[in-house]
Structures are given as structure tokens and as C-alpha cells.
Write a protein that binds this DNA or RNA. Structure first.
Length: 784
DNA sequence: TCTCAATAACTTTTT
DNA sequence: GTTATTGAGA
């Protein structure tokens, strides 16, 4: 293949980083400065110019998606050369070692990886077992304390020895100990364990460590600012020559560190030279992504941080447009304005070239509603993940169980799913028996005579045993997709769902999707591995997968959080919800370190933009159902005025509400004759739709919401549903059989009405979407 | 033991 | 607005 022309392909900052010889270097790569390019070209340079065998190179990142991209681009550059020994995430790197050498630190070879919800339920169990009230202490807080202990490589004993406050000493320490015991007994390992155990393994096994170091003489680490202490130690273990810091190339940007809450230590990058003496530090400040205005604005914001080395990005792309700032009345107004803006930009940009970025997932709802209603194609990244759905987790647990029947956690999950008459009593009895003999539940069930279990339960258990035994045997030799099918057959798993029921249909679809995922995986990974290994590989694959990884370029506006937007870029970016308590987030106000992280979050969001950057802020917002007055984010003040074009919502100047909807003093805010609770606008022009809860608020005499005329509202009149105890003329029209229309679900017929007042629920059969249950208060139905 | 309805609690970000 | 948990009744 032709040699690469490195001088040609790289700029003056990139070239020395790529052609750096031996010894540690840190590359401080600003946003959009071509950092992936530097990493991939460095791999190519090492191989082609420095004579390094690719099998001695490893590249590590945080996300599967970044790793995948890196792999593709390295492959492209290297052509016929073999690929590096490893390109992947920290966790996959650790997993590979643990699967191979776990037994050297007494770890079962076929351990199970716990996901977040597994962890949480295990924490609850551990808290119960240690008689810790789950009301007094939030399991989530305990879990995050344990996680941070693991990130600092503290085992339960070390943690207990250092615990110096009440919570750590009396709550976290005992729960941590019990949590580990329960997890190991069940053959489980959590995400944090994976790193911690790998460090332990390498520290303990000197011979293995030397082999690993030989195999990874050149190590490249991306997103270095997001490494935690455990990961830094792992890097040290793997680096070839610790006395000189090894041939480590670390790439990162301290201004984009947004995982402090997960244990990331910015000091790893800020004090790199202390960790790796003699390191060369380089900066990449030339930006290829954004206009100078975008760089100046984002740079001005992040300049307020103290914890940074500091750099100044520049481009020769020109100033570009000013940033726009829209001051919205509330999140509905915000979404409407953004929607209109996107429509008006649709001439210049495809939908897929635009993104709306928010701080919290909850903020996406208002945008989703609006986009759905206006038919704007969009793509929501994040939220509920496929693999977290109950039916998928069930099937995963089944697969884990048939691979390793001693996996008690999976056993407990599936033993009565679908319901087979194995209730709490029966299960407790079995588990008690198992605990006595120190066996797994399945062992007890298949070998021992069941005692102390009610006959009905014993019978159900026996039936379960008969169902599972052939499948467990099949798992060793039959192809993975066949095993799954046998499983579904033997358990009659799908029969618990009704395909005519909306929810049931969705679950069945998910199961189908899971089946084809299994099929696909088997086809692409099947060569040369045993069926058992394939099953293990599949389970690992799913455990380490996240939704962002499979993010395909689909046509549509991207709607996502700052966190999952990292590494992406768009010609048009809208950064929404720039308010105090949103960004910076409510929970991040006290510590200056947290505040700086919030600022970095905004910086990451702003620097995603190539050509146009739009900011929005609301003067009030509904949070957990209640309206709250919002202050503009303090970070807005950090953007130089000369870079901003400000536009204010007309709704902020016209707070008049239609008189018929204003609580009248005479009626004390209660409804009177002629004040429709089911407000049906007589004509589209007179349409004054009011959001359900506002109407509810005024109805119940609460603080009236400042609802104004909605100039951008779609022409279709919408109906506000207000729950009432006394049916008003309009409310009487809502009964079984009434035809209604929903903004996104279309037309349908009311099947039934449940409850009354604020909690009135309507069962509606929609022509195209089937049965849905709606809360009348929020549904905004239109009577047909 | 299972099903359904009422209630409470929750919302920061995720490998 | 959703989702996890609890409680009552079949």
C-alpha cells in the first residue's frame, strides 16, 4: 500500500504529536481540533514509520461508539497491516483479562455483569440484610458511595478503616461489605469491580503483568479527562516502562470533563506530569469545526473555570453569525419557538444537521410533544434503553441461567416468570435449603429432596426443573438462536402477552427485535467459537452496550442531553433551558467543583455547533408537575454581549388570559354557569387553548398561570379536559362511545372512564394506535 | 398466589 | 407524568 504522507495530512500542531517517539505525552486537544485524527494517524505512524508491530499497540476509550469509529479509521489508514492488539473501552479491556485470568484472583470464570438496576436491587437486599432502613437512607446514595469507593480502589475493609463520617461508618461500610458478599455469592461483578479487580489481578500477578506490558508497549488513551483513579492505576499497570511513564499517549481536554460525578478526576490530566514524569505536554488549539464567534462565546464561558490549564481555540473559518438567545415564557413556548426556528432553517439544513441539547432527560418531553405534533422528524437519544425493558431483561436472565445454572440472581428473576405458581413462600423455602447446604438454588432443586415447601409449590418447582433441564443441555452445543427459541418454547414465555393489547404487542415486538439481535450477533461472531463461548460473548456484548452506541444516522433532529452529545457535531445546535437550577443543575450548586463541571457541560454543548448556535432560556418551567419561576443561568452573563442577538417571547409581554378562563373573584375561583370546563373553542380563530394543568390550577383556585394568546399555535382547535365532580354541559358529552382526537395518537373512541376529578382516566381505542389509557387532565383531547 | 388498583416517590448526567 | 411499591380482594 502507498505510504501515508504525514507532513501533508497533519497541521503544525498535530504532526509532532503524531510523530512523538517513546516516552509519555499528553495531548490537550481542544474541541474540534482533530483529536481522533491524531490518534489514528499516530497508530499508523508507529506501524509504518516507527517499526512497531501492530500487535503491540492498544487504544482505549470510554464508549463503544468512539472505539468503533477509531477502529474503522485505523483500519482505513493501515490497509493491509493487521489491526492493533486492542481497540476498545476500558471496561472491555478489563473484561477480557478477567474472563481469561479471573480464577487467579478467585473470580469465577463465568461471572455475570450487573447493570445499574441489578446493582440497585442488590443494594436494597444488602441494606435489608444489615437492617438498614431504606427509608432513612436512599439506596441510590449508598450505591454511589460504594461506587466511589471502588473508583478509589478501596475494598470494604479499606473503606471502613478510612470512613470518618457517620454515613460512611455506620451505613455505607456495612452495606458495602454485605453487597460484595451477596454479589460474589451470586457470581456477579459490577462495572466498578471490573476495573478494580483488573488492577488487583495485575498487581498480584507479576508474571501476567509483564506479559500484558509486552503486549501493549504502546498505549493510547482517549478522553483522558474522564479517567478515575482506578483507571489511572490500570494505565500505570499496563504501561510498559513505569519508571519512565511508559509509551503512553494520553489525549484529552480538561474543559470537556463531565464525569466527575462518576469518579473522574480532572487532576489526572491537570497533574499529568506528576503521574508520568518527563512527559511531553502538547496543545491542539486550531479548531476545524466552529465559527470564531462560537469559539469566542464558549471560550469566554469556560475561561471562568479555575481548574484548567487553559487554551485558546482559533479557526480560519471566519466570524460567522452571532449567537441567538431566545427568552421564552415557559418550556412549551420554548419548544414552539425552537420548532419554528428549525422549520425556517430547514431550507438551509437537513433535519439531521440540527440538534437540540438539554441538561436533563425530562426536558426532552416538551420538545418531543411539539415535534410529534408538527410532524418534525426527530431522534431521541437516551431515555429508556432497550436492554432495560422487563421482557428483555427476563430473556437475558434466562440466557445467563442456561449458560450457568448456578447463577442465583438470574434464577431468582426467572423462576416465576411467567407466573408458574412459585411464590414467595416457595422460593424462600428453596433458598433457605440452598443456603443450608451452601449450594446454588438450582443444585438444590435438581439434586435434593425438597423439604419444608408446600406441596403445590414443590410441584411447580419440579415442573420448572423439567422445563429447564433440556434447554440447559442444549445451550452447550446448539446454536445460540436455537437455544433462545427452545427457551421461548419451553417456557411459553410469549403466551403471557396479549397481542391485541397495546402493551402486549409492544413487548412481543421487543422480543422479536431481541431475537433478530441474537441472530445477527450469532452470524457476525459465530466463526470458530464454540456455542458456549458465543453465548458468553453475547451476554458480555449486551452488558457493555448502550443505546448511544448504536446511534445510526437517521434523518431527523437529534434531541439529547449534553452528556450523550459529547463527541458529536452539528451545523445547527440549540442549547435549551439555560436557567438556574437546570444548568447549573439544582444538585450542583454548592461545591465550586460541581459548578465548574456544569460550566464544562455548557462548554461541551456549545462547541458541538459548527455554523449556528442558538440558546434558549425560560422564565418559568414545569418541574415535577409544578410551575416554578426560573432565573436565567448565571453562565449566560459570561457570554460577551457583542456575540449575542437577543429575542424575547411576545408572550412575556402579553400575560392577559381570556376572561372566561380567569378565576372570577365573585365566584371565588369556582366554576360558574357559562364558564366551560370543557372549553370548546367555537372557531379556530377564537381558539385559546390552555394547557390542561393551567386550567386545573385555575379551576382549583390555585395561582393562576400566566397563559397568553399563543401566536404560533397550530390551527387545529384543541380541547382542554378539566376534571369536574359535577358534570358541566360539556363534560356530560364525555362518555363511553364519544369520538375524540388526540394530538399525536389520532382519532379514537372512548371505551371507558375511570375515576373522577383530577384523576379521571379515559380508556380510548385509537383507530391507528389501539387501546390507550390517558389521564384526562393531561390528554388535551378534542371532541369530534 | 395472583391481579389490579391505589399510593408514593421521583427526576442529573451513564460505562 | 411515569414508575416502583404496597395493599386489598379473588
Amino acid at each position: 500500500m502507498p505510504r501515508l504522507d504525514f507532513d501533508q495530512a497533519l497541521n503544525a500542531e498535530q504532526l509532532p504529536a503524531v510523530t512523538h517517539g517513546d516516552g509519555p505525552q499528553l495531548i490537550l486537544a481542544g474541541a474540534g481540533s482533530g483529536k481522533t485524527r491524531v490518534i489514528t494517524y499516530r497508530v499508523a505512524w508507529l506501524v509504518q514509520e516507527h517499526g512497531v508491530d501492530p500487535s503491540r499497540i492498544a487504544a482505549v476509550t470510554f464508549t463503544n461508539k468512539a472505539a468503533g469509529e477509531m477502529k474503522d479509521r485505523i483500519e482505513e489508514l493501515l490497509g493491509l497491516y493487521p489491526l492493533p492488539a486492542f481497540v476498545g473501552t476500558f471496561h472491555r479491556f478489563a473484561l477480557r483479562l478477567l474472563r481469561a485470568y479471573g480464577p487467579r484472583i478467585d473470580l469465577s470464570r463465568d461471572f455475570v455483569i450487573l447493570d445499574g438496576s441489578d446493582q440497585l436491587s442488590l443494594i436494597k437486599k444488602a441494606m435489608q440484610a444489615t437492617e438498614m432502613s431504606t427509608d432513612a437512607y436512599r439506596p441510590r446514595a449508598v450505591l454511589s458511595a460504594i461506587s466511589s469507593a471502588k473508583n478509589r480502589l478501596l475494598d470494604p475493609a479499606q473503606f471502613a478503616a478510612r470512613a470518618d463520617d457517620f454515613f460512611s461508618q455506620t451505613v455505607v461500610a456495612p452495606v458495602y461489605r454485605r453487597y460484595q458478599a451477596l454479589m460474589r455469592a451470586a457470581g456477579g461483578v459490577d462495572f466498578d469491580d471490573m476495573i478494580m479487580l483488573t488492577v488487583k489481578l495485575l498487581r498480584r500477578d507479576k508474571e501476567l503483568k509483564q506479559r500484558i506490558r509486552d503486549r501493549h508497549r504502546y498505549l493510547l488513551v482517549d478522553e483522558f479527562q474522564d479517567t478515575n483513579h482506578a483507571q489511572l492505576m490500570l494505565i500505570h499497570q499496563v504501561s510498559a516502562n513505569p519508571e519512565v511513564g511508559g509509551n503512553l499517549t494520553a489525549v484529552g481536554d480538561e474543559d470537556q470533563g463531565i464525569y466527575r460525578w462518576r469518579g473522574a478526576e480532572l487532576d489526572n490530566i491537570l497533574e499529568f506530569e506528576r503521574s508520568f514524569p518527563g512527559a511531553t505536554i502538547r496543545k491542539l488549539e486550531r479548531n476545524y469545526r466552529s465559527t470564531q464567534n462560537i469559539l469566542d462565546a464558549s471560550g469566554a464561558v469556560v475561561a471562568n473555570n479555575v481548574h484548567r490549564r487553559g487554551k485558546r481555540l482559533w479557526t480560519d473559518a471566519g466570524e460567522g453569525e452571532k449567537l441567538r438567545l431566545y427568552k421564552a415564557r415557559d418550556e412549551v413556548d420554548e419548544a414552539r419557538w425552537v420548532n419554528n426556528l428549525l422549520q425556517s432553517l430547514a431550507g438551509d439544513h437537513r433535519h439531521s444537521e440540527m440538534a437540540v441539547l438539554v441538561r436533563t432527560n425530562a426536558q426532552t418531553r416538551a420538545f418531543e410533544d411539539r415535534f410529534l405534533r408538527q410532524g418534525v422528524p426527530y431522534q431521541l437519544v437516551g431515555g429508556v434503553r432497550f436492554y432495560e425493558r422487563a421482557e428483555i431483561k427476563d430473556l437475558m436472565a434466562y440466557l445467563r441461567f442456561v449458560r450457568n445454572p448456578m447463577d442465583n440472581m438470574s434464577f431468582e428473576r426467572i423462576v416465576n416468570r411467567p407466573p408458574r405458581g412459585i411464590g414467595k413462600k416457595t422460593l424462600d423455602g428453596l433458598l433457605a435449603m440452598a443456603a443450608e447446604t451452601g449450594q446454588a438454588a438450582w443444585d438444590t432443586l435438581s439434586k435434593d429432596k425438597l423439604v419444608g415447601i408446600p406441596p403445590r409449590g414443590a410441584k411447580a418447582l419440579a415442573r420448572f426443573r423439567e422445563q429447564m433441564t433440556p434447554v440447559i443441555e442444549a445451550a452447550v452445543e446448539l446454536p445460540l438462536p436455537t437455544v433462545l427459541d427452545r427457551l421461548l418454547e419451553a417456557t411459553a414465555y410469549t403466551e403471557q402477552f396479549d397481542e391485541h393489547d397495546d402493551e402486549g404487542q409492544m413487548r412481543l415486538e421487543n422480543i422479536d427485535e431481541f431475537r433478530s439481535g441474537v441472530q445477527e450477533f450469532a452470524e457476525s461472531h459465530g466463526y470458530g467459537s464454540t456455542e458456549e463461548d458465543l453465548l458468553t460473548a453475547f451476554l458480555d456484548h449486551v452488558s457493555l452496550a448502550s443505546d448511544t452506541d448504536s446511534l445510526k444516522k437517521r434523518p431527523g433532529v437529534t434531541l439529547t442531553t449534553f452528556h450523550s452529545a459529547k463527541g458529536l457535531e452539528f451545523p445547527v445546535v440549540i442549547v435549551a433551558g439555560l436557567e438556574e437550577n437546570v444548568l447549573p443543575h439544582f444538585n450542583a450548586q454548592e461545591l465550586p467543583e460541581n459548578l465548574e463541571e456544569e460550566r464544562r457541560l455548557l462548554y461541551v454543548g456549545m462547541t458541538r455547533a459548527e455554523k449556528r448556535l442558538i440558546l434558549t432560556t425560560c422564565s418559568r418551567r414545569r418541574i415535577a408537575g409544578n410551575y416554578q419561576d426560573q432565573e436565567p443561568s448565571r453562565f449566560l452573563l459570561e457570554i460577551p454581549n457583542r456575540l449575542l442577538d437577543i429575542e424575547t417571547s411576545p408572550e412575556l409581554f402579553a400575560p392577559q388570559r381570556p376572561s372566561w378562563n380567569r378565576p372570577s373573584p365573585r365566584s371565588g375561583g369556582m366554576p360558574t354557569e357559562g364558564m366551560p370546563s370543557w372549553s370548546l373553542p367555537s372557531a379556530p380563530t377564537a381558539s385559546k387553548p390552555v394547557s390542561g394543568s393551567d386550567a386545573v390550577n385555575s379551576f382549583f383556585g390555585r395561582q393562576p398561570a400566566k397563559e397568553a394568546s399563543l401566536p404560533f399555535e397550530d390551527p387545529a382547535p384543541s380541547l382542554t379536559v378539566v376534571p369536574v365532580n359535577e358534570p358541566t354541559p360539556a363534560a356530560r358529552r364525555i362518555k363511553r362511545g364519544t369520538r375524540v382526537r388526540h394530538a399525536s395518537l389520532g382519532a379514537g373512541r372512548i371505551l371507558n372512564i375511570e375515576g373522577s376529578g383530577e384523576d379521571m382516566r379515559l380508556i380510548v381505542y385509537f383507530d391507528s394506535k389501539g387501546r390507550k389509557k390517558l389521564l384526562a387532565k393531561y390528554a388535551q383531547l378534542e371532541i369530534l
